[in-house]
Design a binder for these strands. Structure first.
Length: 1058
RNA sequence: GCCGUGGUGGCGGAAUAGGAAUACGCGAAGGUCUCAAAAACCUUUGCCCUUCACUGGGCGUGUGGGUUCGACUCCCUCCCACGGCACCA
């Protein structure tokens, strides 16, 4: 560090001398001690009688407000950023997330992604790429509709105003969007094709045999020929023979096909406000109440449209491995899809319980899904979700009243209440029993709200010893808990076993005997807390038998489960019978435990045991008949295989992912192109698209829960070409539909004959770089991936992933207050900073540079007006430097060396700036530019005219993507041919960037003690020699001979002395 | 609770691949210019000790440990902040 600074000081000192010795009168008047890059630059810029070629109106000073808007107008007029159609150049598609234009406009926080993607686009244009960098509006949706209702206007008008404002702000920032490709998802020429894609989904089904979507017509053909025989059951459709299919009416066939279509209709619940008589979005319900009127939100069941995204779950998981996305986003998608492998197992209901019911059902059984078939032997009860249809069927007469009350209460609870944190477990026994199919155990059936109808089969086998929720439930209701998986001690990797010897239960000398055997324990208040090493287990059991007092017992828990009552009187806890036996004996011996209903409840009273009683590890199986001893890593697999072979269960994959609901009972969205008739749904003919949203005055919600469109007869009532009367579907699509394909439309935005020209899409797509906030990590990105795969399967696009590279920008927070608290920018807190105010004061280029410089692109960070001032001052120094006159001294020996150094800096800067723009390291792009500026300034009075010009030329070109306005203005003032943005990116030469000398730090025993400067490429022996000779190293060696000298080529020398 | 991300000067942050910690910028202090101020520019700026000075030394990347000639970087423990999910069988 010190050396480095000294070096620079030396250079500056030399520079000053050189400056003074030159002829410039101005420089002679410079302060004697000036010696600075900055004074020098400034002194050169403002000579009183410097001959200037500039028109009088131009300021010599950097005043961005004088020229920024002028240049943007010219760029627009010249169509400088219009994308050219597909050609032979390499393409770069750089895209920002589709924004909803909000009435509040952009803040400096929103610019965090628009500026860097613009820099990148400008960079790739200069690199000779054909760049697509478009912008459009995600214009449909709730915010616009609500704002319009409030303002008593049409949302289309609001969107027009808001997007115009966004466009103005983008212009202010110099963002180089190709506005000729602007799209608006709420215009018929766009949503016509959203409807078209809906129809493609409606007319397709997912064939698991080929793992792809296929036309539904092919399914109909197959059904007519051979029924459902060859179709694996992926949907909840009944099996059908060809004859049965052919016998169905058109309406019945339609209903049957709904089980297969990728766009289908089913009953689903919505939030309903009984007072506003309207459907509420999740966002409009807070704490179970309507956010407008505060009444309690209810559930209402409506027929709604869904996309069958679950069919693609496996592909959506698998293809994540092929794309360059942040790992945490991929992880969030994997978790969201929530693929889990397990088994479905049938638990027969014990029929004698049913005989009491009026309709005895002989083949009744409860199907459960489990990810842990290896724990089946520990299933000691079952739980049904309150909504489960078998609750009604199986509840016995004695329990009916209680069960019905419980179910009614559970249904009243909102989802939020039911999922409340640390909620006390509740549930009711329904009076019926089932048989555990693996061991024939008779186990009770309960109903409880911690089981959800929406996941798995809505019923579970409860394995309380190895599932936390089941454990809590069993403890509360006194249900038996049987360990069936061995506990491993995480710290040793072997079995964890514990014993608690209560004071007075063991004879004297027990502790000494343990000590003699080397079994560790702690003694507190006369009781022993023993942790038994696996190797000593047998010995421990022998010792305990000898020392246990008559009428007392000692137990072992964890890896083994033993109750030691006396010599040769040891009970193993390992099944329902032993549970009963042990409990009876303990109750008999000890009045204090008589209140305990299960062995585990008794043990749970000892806190020392807690970590050994319950665990969810994949350990070796115990207490599981012939499977006991099966190692943990193969247990699930082996049991699943056995279940399949014996017909007790089947291997099953389950997902958390639900199908994508798109129905919105709203006006402002894409109408769903379906007509309802007596013979079922009929899709609107593709040539009749778009189904236009009627332009109406009032679109307040209907009182029935239907969309406002339902109140417009002119829209609703239609007659099909064959004269059949029909009713249009009145739901509109949620906006995720619009944003699931817009990136394709940008490739061919004005096509009226198709959603896009496949050739254009094949050229531009997939998107090379996609940038937006992490809040869309799951939904939007998953849906867009899904649509892309469907369109691929149906032959419309040649790729399966839409976004090759994804990056998320970090949030820009409000400037830090004195208390150091970090806050988001928000209108309500009044701490929003707009680009408008920043551009007005500092100009767009300073804003752009600061947006890049502020921090790592993905990291959240507070805005700082002082930091912004720093980048502004840098730009001003660049301005002065680039517009300074060129009158360097003639070349001589000194300049030759300085020229070489400067040229090296030029190529190093080029390399760094290029690599960092491509790698999303925008903050170091700016710091590298600042350093390059400093180097040129420092060197300017020592180098030749040619080298100085080369450096300044490169600086200007590297600056063009970052500060486009200033670069263009300087380019013009220098009299160069318009435009700087159409220039080639400067050439990089690795040879010229290579260093001649290297400074190597020398470590002695891990501490830097000295440094040597050597030419690059000297031999290892020379380096070591030089290192050992340096003064401070000699001092630290203190006459000793080094034991080891390590040379890391070009990096450092490390000397070890003992 | 689980999952994810992060923790480096007074502040924003940098550090390619295990090899010079704190680049670049802000702020601060002192100075130059000025009648003065602002602006601009110069110098210093992790902490501590030592030296008139040159210098030399110790500590230092949330905590504690480990691996290594060498750790911001790799491994283990713990703490804190932020984001997301939450009875998912």
């Amino acid at each position: 560090m010190a050396t480095k600074k000294k070096t620079r000081n030396t250079k500056i000192a030399k520079g000053t001398k050189a400056a003074k010795s030159t002829k410039s009168a101005q420089r002679k008047t410079a302060p004697r001690k000036a010696a600075s890059r900055r004074t020098t630059a400034r002194a050169v810029v403002q000579p009183p009688n410097h001959p200037t070629t500039q028109p009088p109106k131009q300021s010599a000073k950097y005043i961005p407000q004088e020229f920024e808007s002028k240049w943007f107008q010219k760029w627009t007029a010249d169509e400088l950023y219009q994308t050219t159609p597909a050609d032979e150049r390499p393409k770069a598609y750089i895209l920002d997330f589709f924004p909803y234009p909000s009435g509040d406009g952009l803040s400096v926080g929103h610019c965090r992604n628009y500026v860097p993607t613009d820099v990148m686009s400008r960079y790739y244009r200069m690199r000779g790429y054909n760049v697509l960098h478009p912008m459009g509006w995600d214009a449909f949706g709730l915010p616009a509709e609500n704002a319009a209702i409030k303002a008593k206007t049409n949302p289309a008008k609001l969107i027009a105003d808001y997007s115009a404002n966004y466009k103005r702000q983008f212009a202010l920032l110099g963002i180089s969007f190709d506005w000729s490709r602007e799209i608006n998802s709420s215009q018929p020429n766009y949503y016509r094709w959203t409807q078209w894609i809906f129809l493609q989904l409606y007319k397709a089904w997912y064939d698991p045999r080929v793992n792809a979507a296929r036309p539904i017509a092919e399914l109909e053909k197959e059904l007519a020929e051979q029924g459902t025989r060859a179709i694996p059951s992926v949907v909840s459709a009944d099996a059908l023979t060809a004859e049965q299919w052919r016998a169905l009416s058109a309406k019945e066939r339609n209903a049957f096909l709904m089980n297969f279509r990728l766009a289908y209709r089913k009953a689903a619940q919505v939030n309903w406000c009984p007072s506003c008589k309207t459907v509420l979005a999740n966002e409009e319900v807070s704490e179970g109440k309507c956010w407008r009127c505060g009444s309690v939100a209810e559930k209402k069941t409506l027929m709604q449209w869904f996309f069958r995204i679950t069919a693609y779950a496996d592909r959506l998981v698998a293809d994540l491995d092929t794309i360059d996305w942040p790992e945490h986003i991929k992880l969030m998608q994997r978790n969201w899809i929530g693929r889990s492998e397990g088994a479905e197992v049938q638990f027969p209901v014990i029929s004698d319980q049913l005989s009491a019911n009026s309709s005895p059902i002989t083949d009744n059984s409860i199907t459960v899904f489990t990810t842990r078939p290896d724990t089946l032997w520990g299933a000691t009860f079952m739980v049904l979700a309150p909504e489960h249809p078998l609750v009604e069927k199986l509840t016995t007469a004695e329990c009916r009243a209680q069960v019905e009350a419980y179910v009614a209460q559970a249904k009243r609870e909102t989802e939020a209440e039911r999922a409340a944190v640390e909620k006390e477990k509740t549930g009711v026994f329904i009076g019926a029993y089932a048989t555990n199919p693996v061991n024939g155990a008779r186990i009770p059936i309960w109903v409880a709200d911690y089981v959800m109808m929406g996941y798995g089969t809505g019923a579970i086998m409860a394995v309380p010893a190895h599932d936390e929720r089941d454990f809590a439930f069993a403890l509360k209701f006194g249900l038996p808990i049987l360990p069936v998986i061995e506990r491993t001690d995480p710290s040793t990797g072997s079995g964890l076993a514990k014993s608690f010897a209560l004071g007075g239960t063991m004879r004297d000398g027990f502790a000494d005997a343990l000590r003699a055997e080397g079994i560790p324990f702690e003694e507190k208040q006369g009781s022993l807390y023993i942790t038994i090493p696996p190797a000593k287990m047998t010995r421990y059991v022998e010792i305990a038998q000898q020392f246990v007092q008559p009428g007392e017992w000692n137990e072992v828990v964890g890896a083994r489960w033993l109750f030691i009552f006396g010599p040769n009187d040891v009970e193993t806890f390992g099944g329902m019978e032993s549970e009963k036996r042990i409990l009876a004996r303990c109750h008999a011996l000890e009045p204090d435990v008589r209140g305990k209903r299960t062995v585990m409840e008794m043990l749970y009273a000892v806190e020392f045991y807690h970590d050994a009683l319950f665990h969810a590890e994949y350990g070796a199986m115990i207490n599981s008949d012939e499977f006991s001893g099966t190692p943990g890593n193969v247990a699930v697999h082996r049991v699943t295989q056995w279940l399949q072979q014996t017909g007790k269960g089947t291997r099953q994959v389950n997902y958390k992912l639900r199908d994508w609901g798109i129905s919105r009972q709203r006006y402002w969205g894409t109408p769903i192109p379906i007509i309802h008739t007596d013979r079922g749904e009929v899709p609107v003919d593709e040539k009749d698209l778009p189904v236009k949203l009627p332009d109406v005055e009032s679109y307040e919600p209907s009182a029935t829960g239907e969309s406002p469109l339902a109140t417009i007869p002119k829209f609703v009532n239609v007659t099909l070409p064959d004269g059949t009367p029909g009713r249009r579907e009145t739901d509109t699509m949620g906006t995720f539909a619009c944003s699931s394909w817009y990136f394709m439309r940008f490739a061919d935005p004005h096509n009226d004959d198709a959603a896009f020209d496949p050739k254009q899409v094949a050229y531009w797509l997939p998107v090379d770089t996609y940038v937006g906030g992490a809040e869309h990590a799951v939904m939007h990105l998953l849906y867009a991936r899904f649509w892309t795969k469907v369109l691929h399967d149906l032959g419309y696009v040649p790729f399966v992933e839409p976004f090759t590279r994804l990056r998320n920008q970090g949030m820009i927070l409000a400037p830090e207050e004195k208390d150091g608290k970090r806050e988001k920018m928000s209108k309500s807190k009044g701490n929003v900073i707009t680009p408008d105010e920043v551009v007005k004061e500092y100009g767009a280029d300073a804003l752009r540079a600061y947006e890049m410089f502020i921090s790592d692109f993905e990291q959240a960070t507070p805005w700082s007006t002082q930091g912004l001032g720093g980048t502004w001052r840098w730009l001003r120094r660049v301005w002065d430097l680039l517009l300074a006159p060129s009158d360097r001294p003639a070349a001589d020996a000194t300049t030759e060396r300085a020229d070489r150094d400067l040229r090296r800096a030029i190529h190093k800067a080029n390399r760094k700036v290029s690599a960092d723009i491509e790698g999303f390291r925008f903050n170091t792009v700016v710091s590298a530019m600042m350093e390059f500026t400093n180097v040129i300034t420092d060197a300017q009075s020592q180098v030749s005219d040619a080298a100085f010009e080369e450096a300044r030329h490169t600086l200007l070109l590297l600056l063009a993507p970052i500060a486009p306005f200033m670069a263009e203005e300087i380019w013009a003032r220098k009299g160069r041919k318009y435009s700087v943005h159409q220039q080639k990116w400067p050439q990089f030469d690795a040879m010229l960037a290579a260093d001649e000398m290297m400074t190597l730090p020398i470590m002695v025993n891990g501490k830097v003690r000295d440094r040597v400067e050597l030419p690059v490429g000297v031999s290892e022996i020379e380096v070591k020699d030089a290192a050992l000779r340096t003064q401070n190293v000699q001092k630290h060696l203190a006459g000793k001979t080094p034991a080891q000298v390590i040379y890391v080529p070009g990096r450092m020398v490390s000397i070890v002395v003992r």
